[in-house]
Design a protein around this nucleic acid. Structure first.
Lengths: 227, 227
DNA sequence: TCAAAAGTGTTGAAGATACACCCATGG
DNA sequence: CCATGGGTGTATCTTCAACACTTTTGA
């Protein structure tokens, strides 16, 4: 990209949009019970949309790569590090920010170990919200969240997408619960297990908890994805 | 979105990347023979990469939407209008433009009726290149082209993606040739026809050309896509 | 009558869906 | 012994891949 018409491209004499990143970071609620997805939101303490909740995000800095900016914002605004993100796309509709034209690049992630949420920087507070009960969102963030969820649903078709999210060892019930949370639908136990059979291998260990049969532990097999 | 930390966001006191759009516009070679894809490129007449070929593109203007900017650049640099484009994503790797940090949003399109290429504006010339024999490209445009082709291949899985590209009436051989050009592989005639059967309807007309059986004409049926 | 492209069906394999019962454990 | 979640197999349907010959026409 960047097929500018001027050789002195750094000295623009016209106004231009700013670039931001926004991050839709999801996490599953605790396994065991019915797993649901939660979304990380930041409460805005400055206008516009003061007091509303918004996706973490902010301006991309000069010579900063987009994923880097997304990770930085996540750390600055919620104290989260080492989160795996991927890009969904860019949105630049004029008017989406009342202060001026911004083009945002949307990143999505699924987080394990959410760690401690520290409302750092200028963000009043950060919190997790169940995705089906979100508060009113600032800017066009509701649209972004919809796009983010749709993208997640597509990705999880390849079960290995969840590899970074689960601990090294997990039970198939955990894997299924997480998949169901992302898809928003329930899956048949037997069909699910057949489908993931080639992607995981039993470690031999078991997990005992509660008055019932212990669950075998699995890990992801090496090798490429399927489907 | 735009979760800035300043309420006076328009007065940034730090340097920031510029936003560009780039367009990978493909077209099929003439049907009848073996259909191949060609890509529209613009010859750069200014440094950097002076003399190299590049994707059409340029800076996004203040309060201009991204698809609008992509269409405008296509018109300015190649004289093409009314091309249907869709977005693939954003790339903002520092160093991708030696003049300074730019974030580009990549758009892709498939063009029918390419019209007359007018090397307008500052572009020395515009031309079509068979995708398997591209010249050296400026910036990181080779990467963008690869991403664009991969995206096209995914989209064409839904045959209706080609709806905007074909004339109102077309033969199944034309439809198949175009699909094959996008995929870069050959398809079985019978399987292809079975697959598209529900998406198209015969208009009753035929096209006669050459010393062989005339081809029936089809149009796309109304209704949503499948698969 | 010939060359050239249009058109057409069947079979097998793989993948998806639907569905119900036994197992191992802790309390 | 019972409540709880873990674990398993079969039948059906749909989808995809492979594969070869007949039809219609203009020259």
């Amino acid at each position: 990209m960047k097929s500018s018409r001027s050789a002195t491209a750094r000295t623009y004499d016209f106004p231009r949009p700013a670039v931001t990143v926004d991050v839709a970071l999801f996490r599953p609620t605790a396994p065991g019970t019915h797993v649901r997805l939660e979304l990380l939101l930041i409460r805005r303490d400055l206008p516009p949309f003061r007091g509303d909740w918004a996706l973490p995000g902010g301006f991309v800095r000069e010579n900063e790569d987009l994923p880097e900016a997304a990770g930085r914002e996540l750390e600055e605004e919620a104290g989260l590090k080492q989160v795996v993100l991927y890009q969904v796309g860019a949105v630049g509709t004029p008017g989406r920010d009342p202060r001026g034209h911004t083009v945002t690049v949307l990143f999505v992630g699924l987080s394990r170990n959410p760690g401690v949420l520290s409302a750092g920087g200028d963000a009043t507070s950060a919190d997790w919200f169940v995705v089906d009960e979100l508060p009113k969102l600032a800017f066009d963030h509701a649209v972004l969240v919809t796009a983010a969820r749709a993208s997640l649903r597509e990705r999880v078709e390849d079960i290995r997408f969840l590899q970074d999210l689960l601990p090294a060892e997990f039970t198939l019930a955990e894997l299924q619960g997480l998949t169901e949370a992302v898809l928003g639908t329930e899956l048949d136990v037997r069909n699910f297990r057949r489908k993931v059979r080639e992607a995981v291998v039993a470690t031999g260990g078991v997990r005992r908890e509660g008055a019932h049969r212990p669950a075998q532990l699995f890990r992801f097999a090496r090798g490429k994805s399927r489907r």
